[in-house]
Nucleic acid binder design. Structure first.
Lengths: 94, 94
DNA sequence: TAAATTGTAACCCATAACGTTACTGGTTAC
DNA sequence: GTAACCAGTAACGTTATGGGTTACAATTTA
């Protein structure tokens, strides 16, 4: 499964949370209680969503932390699955 | 949500994958292509399931990588959510 | 008794999540 | 046009985590 390259959660934050509200990155970083650099890294795909960050996002944008971590999961897994064939693993169950 | 403390994925691996098959930790580590210490750390809850490890488990035990990472997600989130009230975050959406 | 198994301590390395400070370039406002 | 704001990011440090090797102690099994 997981057929298409899932967007990194930063894109979703920007397009669905920040831009519609007309907020600045600086203001959102302050609201989240993190540095502007940390938020910028997330928005531009240079950092992932940590469990704590998922909770912060869920508070600020009135969502669930699980949904944010799930997006990160699918993004990480898409890259990990690309390397599946390169892993030297023996099947223990048919 | 997430009412009860979810078990760490290591417990699940031991109880649902290793013990039923009568395998040794040493043998499973070799099959997974990782060190015995790394597997031991996972089994005893001293390390989490990385995306790559989820893919290894999915190959060895004929499961999905997503299911393993999802268990890790819920485990991590359970601890992160416990700190929710301590986070200084301002609501941007009602 | 001898061999195998397991947990783990001690050490290494690489990566990642956070922070601060500071620079640069682009927009907006006056 | 100049001052203010805004965003990306480079450079630095700290802390934590995943992974490896080696080695030891305790237990189990043959």
């Amino acid at each position: 499964m997981l057929m298409h390259n899932p967007p990194h959660p930063g894109e979703v934050i920007r397009e669905l949370c920040i831009e519609p509200l007309g907020l600045s990155v600086t203001d959102v970083a302050k609201a989240l209680g993190i540095s502007r650099k940390t938020l910028s890294n997330i928005l531009n795909g240079h950092a992932g969503i940590s469990p704590e960050m998922a909770v912060r996002l869920s508070i600020a944008f009135n969502t669930t932390s699980e949904s944010w971590l799930n997006q990160q999961l699918h993004h990480d897994l898409w890259f990990a699955e690309k390397e599946r064939k390169k892993l030297k693993v023996k099947k223990l169950v048919a």
